[in-house]
């Protein structure tokens, strides 16, 4: 890497501009979170009057106490964790399996299958027929009815296929010459080389599962089978009946403060996923290292 680093003046200016722009971008993206965190830690009067910007006023933790004390919050949190972990593992497996053959020009039937995926990506049979299906499978009010709809995204499939196509054919060829069967080539050569792509697709699925609530809104009528994001969505779109709380408790709380706290708490788990996956986004696994 060091060998490629330029020392010319023009490049240095470019690099400074680049870092400055990226810092600005990072800041612009971070501020709303800071704003929300500040709101979640501020007293009711300040939040209601819209006085909180990026630093809490009248520090309080009562919003977090309120959110974390709610049974439903924990229940839905567990549901979301299950859906996300199981869903992502399943989806990643199926998508990788489906994408690999599609990246092989020699695979007869490839075009038909690809067209099938494109077609099914664009046409949607409507909510009613999907509901009938879920009901027939007896999956309403379960966590599985929230996993199945997202278990294969054609969008991710195409990305994965494109990534596989980017791998030099020569590597697989040499493995084959060494006597490795197709299955062994896939497991011991292709997949290790595809870690960045696998990490990307896993992230896309994990985020889709964690953020998803649309299907739960249709298939789930029992509070204990809802995902966290549906709980949050309901909390944000309906007014919290804070007037029904006792005055002492309500005094420190505002509905926007509670919403902010809930958003902060629910974002943390998924925000952690990315930095964790980032270590697979490394240029280190170059083709050369495998070749040698």
């Amino acid at each position: 890497m060091a060998a490629v680093t330029q020392k010319s003046g023009g490049d240095r200016v470019l690099r400074v501009i680049n870092v400055a722009l990226l810092s600005l971008l990072g800041l612009v993206c971070l501020l709303p979170f800071v704003h929300m965190a500040a709101k979640s830690l501020s007293g009711r009067a300040a939040v209601s009057a819209g006085r909180v910007a990026f630093w809490p006023i009248d520090w309080t933790l009562s919003t977090y106490r309120y959110v974390l004390q709610d049974d439903l919050f924990w229940r839905t949190f567990q549901n979301s964790a299950f859906i996300t972990i199981v869903g992502t593992l399943l989806a990643l497996t199926i998508t990788t399996m489906a994408a690999y053959p599609l990246s092989k020009p020699g695979f007869k039937g490839r075009k038909v299958i690809l067209l099938l995926y494109v077609f099914s990506m664009l046409f949607y049979g409507g909510m009613i027929s999907v509901y009938i299906l879920m009901r027939a499978l007896n999956l309403l009010n379960t966590l599985w009815c929230q996993i199945i709809p997202l278990v294969l995204s054609q969008y991710n499939l195409f990305i994965m296929k494109t990534f596989f196509e980017g791998l030099p054919e020569a590597i697989e060829e040499s493995a084959r010459i060494d006597g490795a069967g197709p299955a062994r080539t896939l497991v011991s050569i292709v997949l290790p080389l595809s870690l960045p792509s696998l990490a990307t697709i896993a992230l896309f699925y994990a985020v889709a599962y964690w953020n998803g609530y649309y299907h739960a809104m249709i298939f789930v009528t029992r509070a204990d089978a809802k995902p966290l994001q549906l709980y949050l969505y309901e909390m944000i779109t309906t007014t919290q009946n804070l007037y029904e709380l006792d005055p002492a408790q309500a005094a420190g709380l505002s509905s926007s403060g509670i919403q902010a706290a809930a958003i902060v708490v629910s974002s943390i788990p998924i925000l952690i996923v990315y930095p964790f996956l980032q270590k697979y986004f490394v240029h280190g696994l170059t083709i050369g290292s495998v070749k040698g």
Binding site: L22, S23, L25, G26, L27, C29, L30, P32, F33, V207, N211, L232, Y233, I236, I263, S267, I270, L271, Y274, P275, Q278
Partner: peptide
């Protein structure tokens, strides 16, 4: 930076 710029995606 990479982590920061993807944060807004999580806000509804």
């Amino acid at each position: 930076t990479q982590t920061l710029i993807y944060m807004p995606h999580f806000i509804s």
